[in-house]
Design a protein around this nucleic acid. Structure first.
Length: 874
RNA sequence: GGGAGUAUAGCUCAGCUGGUUCAGAGCAUCUGCCUUACAAGCAGAGGGUCCUUGGUUCGAAUCCAUGUACUCCCACCA
């Protein structure tokens, strides 16, 4: 497309992405430069791109592209996570839709289906990232179940087991009856749920009296093995040694006393079900109670009790309520709101369940990881997350790492026929170990039974920054040596514990070093009503549609403008308009510059010289600001700074200053310098808007094949003339004042005006050329007396006049002057109030005193000038 | 139940260690303009008790305390 056409992002974006790929700019290999490494938070293999990814990956791309343009060897490793529960659930559902039940398949058959699924859907999200312009090193694309990564996981498991950090045991775990697997504590989310509180009658054995017990889960009476009251509860003082009968079940259970029970709650009596409640389990251990597990893995009732067998737990709850009522054992039912733990992945209510699982001891491992964050060796941005992190790490619990699933890394534990197990990387090693352990040299592989479980997904992703560089299998390889530790991690705060904390732990355990230097937490993308964007609510736009409508550059700019670290962002489609409008502005500014014809015989006008000098100073100042913003990860501010620089300063002021008259040519020097400036502006904007900046950069001057803005260097800041910038603010004020007068007096811009000035210390005629050009002034004449027939204005302390003959309205002029006078006098009074206050003069630092004195002088001078003009006019 | 955070213009937010970057920005709104790069634009304008109440200070949006309102995290209350 031609540059003088309208801006149309669709036409340029795919072209440049292909070019970048073809030129292999994204790929990084170790060299002499400083490495800058980012590993992507691997999205779920079956995921689709949503607004959260959009935000997250835009930030990463901005950081990576900028680092690359700062001369670093930037490497952004992309990849996906196998997400064992989520993916397995999807595959199971898909098979079910085809009429295949998972239980009829062998492990191998199921995994075949799962891999097919992965191959079919696994690449979608990464392809979507390309549309966004993500400059990932695609040749390094990793998947958490790639051979290298899987063997890393297994090695680490074996190593931790060898170190005695991994143990196997029966514990109360969070059971997901839908996925039929254990979950870690972090995978349980608590939701408010409107339920009921049931008051059940437990008859006292050998008596017609009863004790009422309040419970939210009456179905668990099947597993009741005691009734517990507080020893200090007088209502139950005479219950020592007595027993009660479990309603409906007619089992006799003891009454025990423990101060765990809250006297205030319900009736002060607690039913104890050690198999199905964590607290009850602890009571059970303490008082040596029988444990009756009443559920099957899928949440239906088993045959242990011999009643209600096969019923689902929630069906049973209603059934029990009816049966209790019929038997007159239900005193009452109250509405009750409580928190119910649900599976993060499947949403199913969690069932606390006793089962044999594998655990990782975290306490010791967590120590270096805690110190690292507290000492800012790993810096969290924003820092408020340090508190949360500290609290979690100091109270870290053992990590349940086994899952009763097939999709994932299978635990490398092999059970011996006569009890005991060995842990080994291969079957052959396992056999050797087994022979040693059992003393039976005739053992064969088929005698060993491998543990069925797989490892928690996070047990593979916690190695991500190491395993993508194969740093577990080959700890000395050149990639890991060069790229590790990585620099920035960009992620959402909801996986701080799942992932970030554990990566830091693994980093210290397996590399003896932090995995990254900075963690940038993005906010959560919400809609206008502050609701989290989600598929179910249907309030999330499809990012691909947005890109199609506004262009990737436009969407990127929109996201970056409204996102500061750690705070949520309220997104709506219309925000993209701002991004697209800005792209359009950039495009059109280039069209203007590009459309000028050059005349090498004309001299460079004075106004252009000044404009270039001024803009270069401003550019330097802005680059320094942007550098600072990036240093503090204030990315949206960096962009806003550049946005204003380009729109207001460059387009609004600079281009207007150097713009030749209609169809007139421009001098070659100004054009060349302007193109240079334009190029720098493109470089500065490139990390945010990669496509349009490449397109224009390529067009500015002929480029060789193989050149690209993305591998060019960022402009660097240098000394700039601070005074020039301040003086220019005065120039702008003068121009604006003249524009205001034009507006008031209805004078069209085309009509030329004369300007008179009474020079004083704040006046500098260097800039007259600029003023005349910008405000369409014919001449600026220095005078000594006020022109009372002219429209007047004061900038700083300098008085200006525009002779308008009879066009000025003395009445309204006086009114305005008086208003201004009142304001200035009030202002002066407050300044004088400070200066006359002895304590202020004594305590305030010299700098503050100076400014106050300057304020005083300026306003006094202004007041004097206004008073004079008032007296002349009236 | 414990902990943390936030409250500034209609909206989204800046405002670092109290003082000319102190009341700001962008968007939105309003008023003029189809001015020869751009109406996805240009030129202007309006808009805030800096959540309440106290305190510290010569001086508070900024520091301290109290209250209020939201948000998030953690926790085994049946």
């Amino acid at each position: 497309m031609q540059i003088n056409d309208k801006y149309s992002p669709q036409e340029i974006e795919s072209k440049w992405y292909e070019y970048w790929i073809e030129q292999d700019y994204f790929h990084s290999t170790p060299d002499h430069r400083e490495a800058y490494t980012v590993v992507i938070p691997p999205p779920n293999v079956t995921g689709m791109l949503h607004m959260g990814h959009m935000l997250n990956n835009t930030i990463q791309d901005v950081l990576v592209r900028r680092a690359r343009m700062l001369g670093k060897n930037a490497c952004w490793v992309p990849g996906t996570d196998h997400a064992s529960i989520a993916t397995e659930a999807k595959v199971v559902a898909k098979l079910k839709a085809e009429g295949i039940d998972k239980s009829t398949l062998t492990r191998e058959e199921f995994l075949k289906h799962a891999w097919e699924w992965k191959d079919k859907h696994g690449g979608i999200i990464l392809n979507q990232l390309r549309k966004l312009g993500a400059s990932c090193d695609w040749e390094r694309t990793a998947f958490t179940m790639d051979d290298d990564l899987s063997s890393s996981v297994i090695k680490v498991f074996i190593d931790l087991h060898k170190k005695g950090k991994i143990y196997r045991g029966v514990r109360m775990v969070n059971w997901d009856p839908s996925a039929k697997t254990a979950l870690s504590d972090e995978e349980v989310i608590y939701k408010e749920s409107q339920g009921k509180l049931y008051y059940l009658k437990y008859m006292i054995e050998g008596s017609d009296k009863y004790i009422v017990v309040a419970t939210t889960r009456p179905e668990t009476i099947l597993g009741d093995t005691a009734l517990c009251v507080n020893p200090n509860d007088e209502r139950y003082a005479d219950m020592d040694g007595k027993r009660v009968i479990v309603p409906l079940i007619n089992r006799s259970i003891p009454i025990i006393k423990d101060d765990y029970v809250d006297i205030e709650f319900g009736t002060g009596a607690l039913k104890v079900t050690p198999a199905h409640d964590v607290n009850d389990y602890m009571l059970g251990e303490k008082y040596n109670l029988e444990v009756i597990d009443i559920f099957n893995d899928n949440g239906t009732i088993n045959d242990k009790v011999g009643m209600y067998e096969g019923l689902d737990r929630f069906v049973l709850r209603d059934q029990i309520e009816k049966d209790l009522a019929t038997a007159n054992l239900l005193e009452k039912v109250e509405p009750y709101t409580n928190k119910v733990g649900c599976s993060e992945r499947t949403g199913a209510p969690i069932e606390p369940k006793l089962s044999m699982q594998w655990f990782l001891q975290m306490e010791e491992l967590a120590k270096p990881a805690l110190t690292a964050v507290m000492d800012d060796v790993v810096k969290l941005v924003p820092a408020k997350f340090k508190n949360t992190y500290k609290h979690w790490m100091e109270n870290v619990k053992d990590w349940c790492i086994s899952r009763q699933l097939w999709w994932g890394q299978q635990i490398p534990a092999y059970y011996l026929p006569k009890g005991g197990y060995v842990v080994a990387e291969t079957e052959e090693e396992a056999l050797e170990l087994a022979k040693q352990k059992s003393g039976d040299s005739n053992l064969t592989i088929s005698d060993l039974r491998r543990d069925e479980d797989v490892l928690d997904t996070w047990f593979s992703s916690w190695l991500w920054p190491i395993s993508v560089f194969n740093g577990i299998n080959e700890p000395e390889n050149s990639d890991i040596q060069y790229y590790y530790p990585t620099n920035d991690l960009v992620t959402a705060p909801d996986i701080l514990f799942f992932w970030v904390a554990r990566m830091i732990v693994a980093g210290y355990e397996y590399r003896g070093e932090k995995p990254f230097s900075n963690v940038y937490f993005t906010g959560i993308v919400r809609d206008k009503q502050r609701r989290k964007m989600s598929k179910q609510l249907g309030n999330s736009p499809d990012p691909i549609d947005l890109i199609a409508e506004y262009g990737a550059d436009g969407v990127r700019v929109a996201m970056m403008l409204c996102s500061s670290a750690g705070s949520d962002l309220m997104f709506e489609d219309s925000l993209c308009e701002q991004g697209r409008n800005f792209s359009n502005k950039v495009w059109n500014a280039y069209r203007l510059v590009n459309g000028w014809s050059v005349d090498t015989t004309i001299e460079q006008p004075e106004s252009s010289k000044i404009a270039i000098e001024w803009f270069n100073a401003l550019l330097n100042k802005t680059i320094a600001e942007v550098d600072d913003n990036f240093k503090d990860y204030r990315i949206s501010e960096a962009l806003m700074t550049l946005y204003k620089l380009f729109w207001d300063e460059f387009s609004g002021w600079y281009l207007e200053m150097i713009k030749p008259a209609y169809q007139a040519p421009i001098d070659s020097k100004t054009l060349a310098q302007t193109k240079e400036i334009f190029e720098k502006l493109m470089s500065l904007l490139h990390p945010f808007m990669p496509f349009i900046t490449e397109e224009l950069w390529q067009d500015i001057s002929p480029r060789e094949k193989g050149e690209s803005i993305m591998v060019s260097l960022q402009p660097v800041t240098s000394e700039f003339n601070q005074e020039l910038l301040q003086e220019f603010d005065i120039v702008k004020d003068v121009v604006t004042s003249i524009r205001n007068i034009r507006k008031e007096k209805n004078l069209p811009n085309k009509e030329t005006l004369e300007l008179k000035v009474i020079p004083d210390s704040n006046y500098n005629d260097t800039y007259n050329a600029v003023i005349t050009k910008m405000a369409n002034i014919t001449s600026i004449e220095s005078v000594t007396d006020k022109d009372i027939t002219a429209a007047a204005f004061i900038v700083k302390t300098t008085e200006y006049f525009i002779p308008l003959g009879d066009k000025i309205d003395v009445e309204s002029e006086l009114k305005k002057l008086n208003e201004e006078l009142v304001y200035l006098e009030g202002f002066l009074r407050s300044v004088m109030g400070k200066l006359n206050n002895e304590r202020f003069v004594q305590n305030a630092p010299a700098k503050v005193l100076d400014t106050e004195n300057a304020k005083k002088d300026d306003s006094e001078a202004k007041i004097k000038a206004i008073k004079e003009r008032i007296s002349q006019l009236s």
